[in-house]
Amino acid sequence: MKAKDLNERSLEDLKELEKSLRSDLFQNRLKNFTNRLDDTSNIRKTRRDLARVLTVLKSRGAAPEAQASTKEG
């Protein structure tokens, strides 16, 4: 996944892609933990793709939901 391709996508599409990548990352980690993941490089690739998506979202001013909430205490 290239950053140039991400810049051309809409905001809603990027948010949907973020959710999908988070889900894929969780599934890959779970499979790795249970020794069912054949290609462990998928975890790294997914993490990097997710970072690219979050970077594009942040540059557009759309904060991700997980980081947008502030901790008050």
Rank of each mutant, 00 (worst) to 15 (best):
K15D: 04
P64G: 02
N42R: 12
L25M: 06
A51V: 01
A51G: 01
G61D: 02
F33C: 10
G61Q: 02
K31L: 10
V53Q: 00
D49T: 02
L17A: 06
T40H: 15
E72G: 13
K71L: 14
N42I: 09
L37V: 08
A68F: 06
K31I: 01
A3K: 09
P64I: 01
L25F: 13
G73Y: 08
P64Q: 02
E72I: 14
F26S: 12
S59F: 07
Q67I: 15
R9K: 08
N35H: 13
L6Y: 01
R22K: 13
R60L: 04
N32Y: 07
K15P: 04
I43D: 12
L14F: 01
K58A: 12
F26Q: 11
L14A: 01
R22H: 10
A66H: 15
M1L: 07
A3M: 07
E72H: 13
E65G: 03
E65D: 13
K4L: 06
A66D: 15
K4N: 04
S10K: 05
N7E: 05
V53A: 00
L25Y: 14
A51S: 07
N35S: 11
D49M: 08
N28K: 12
K58D: 14
L11D: 08
E16M: 05
R29E: 15
T46L: 01
A3C: 06
Q67P: 11
F33G: 12
G73Q: 06
P64L: 01
A66G: 15
R60S: 05
M1R: 05
L54K: 11
R22G: 06
D39L: 01
A3H: 07
G73P: 15
S10V: 02
L30R: 13
R36H: 08
V53D: 00
T46F: 00
L37G: 09
A63D: 11
R22P: 03
F26E: 12
N42F: 12
R36A: 06
R36M: 10
R44E: 15
L17T: 06
D39G: 00
F26V: 12
K45G: 00
N32F: 09
L6C: 03
L14V: 01
E8N: 04
R29F: 15
E65F: 10
T40E: 15
V53H: 01
D38W: 02
G73H: 08
E8W: 02
E72Y: 14
L30H: 13
P64Y: 04
R47V: 10
N42E: 09
M1C: 05
P64C: 02
N35Q: 07
S41L: 07
A3R: 07
A66T: 13
R60T: 05
F33I: 11
